[in-house]
Simulated scan of single mutants.
Amino acid sequence: MAAVTAALIKELRDRTGAGMGDCKKALEAVEGDLDKAIEKLRMDGTTKADKKAGRTAAEGIIALASNAEAVALVEVNSETDFVAKNPEFRALAQSAANAALVHRPKSAEELVALKVGDRTLDELRRELVGKIGENLTIRRVDIVVSGGGPLVTYVHPGDKIAVAVALTAGSVDLAKDLAMHIAAMSPRAVDPASISADIVAAERRIIEAQVAQEQAEDAAAGKKPKPAEIVAKMTEGKVTKFLDEQTLIGQPFVKNDAYGLKSDAKVREVLTKEKATVSQFVRLAVGEGIEKKQTDFAAEVAAAGG
């Protein structure tokens, strides 16, 4: 049995980054064997990660990695914004983005199974959970592939929103402006053809119900009902408006003044004028779709005091 000295504890801490107290306990548990202590700390970290897995992680950052052929965007989440600024957390996110760029996984599940050195990203994540004490998740990955034209990125200050845009034709300046537009306006797809038919059908049903309700209210007020062809045109007009709002080419461009166009000119007009085409874009924002737990701090304090 090796003596658990201060020097041995320091060496274990330097090699693992774990706290001094955890290092001392691990060494004592394995009778001073450094390699076994390292393994124990890893296992303890995994146990802690499993215990914290059910806790909501809706903060975090979007990490990017890019080369001439593609951009990889990865969302990595933490429970608090404080941890999202932690250098080790950010290093994990960047490692995930770098691995995604090389291997181009099709899902977060594929991504976390990739190895960085001798461990998978999920193993690295679990170890960091044990060390930091918060649930951490590698939630989403997207790859934007070059379309033959400019391939640009935009990251909003704070790394909470990131965009990658690939053009098949057009200038780098236009691509950068489009990336900023996408960050601000959150289009769902490039054009109507890129939106799922199921989404369009669901929206059409909602619009038809709204139009029918308007017709019923008019009838109740003694107004003459609109002819069927007018109702059909109203419905199609609302569907078209929905598609314009949801697609990049249908939205009014936020930087029309820079291209000599009217203030309400749409992106499709800018693309036509600049002889440009968008092949793909991805916009990721931290925490999209995650239901955040509403915390009643006053109740928590009262409960703690009682």
Rank of each mutant, 00 (worst) to 15 (best):
L284N: 10
L261F: 02
L271Q: 01
V270R: 05
V254A: 14
Q215Y: 08
R283Q: 06
T235A: 12
S279E: 07
N256V: 02
Q246A: 11
I249Q: 04
T272S: 14
E229M: 11
G260M: 07
G287R: 04
G222I: 01
P225A: 10
R268V: 14
K241N: 11
E291F: 08
K238R: 04
E229H: 12
V286T: 00
K224M: 10
G289D: 07
K238E: 03
E214D: 09
L261M: 05
E291N: 14
V267Q: 15
E288H: 04
K238N: 01
A285P: 08
L261R: 01
L248H: 05
E208G: 03
Q210P: 07
K266C: 12
K233W: 13
G287P: 05
A228V: 11
P225Y: 07
E274S: 05
E274R: 03
A209L: 01
M234P: 01
T247N: 14
K238D: 02
I290S: 02
K266L: 15
L271R: 00
K273F: 11
R283I: 03
L261A: 05
E236T: 01
V239E: 04
V278N: 09
L271K: 00
Q246K: 04
V231T: 02
E274N: 04
A265Q: 06
K241R: 14
V270S: 12
Q246F: 02
M234F: 02
E269C: 10
K233G: 13
Q210V: 13
S263F: 08
T272L: 15
A219N: 13
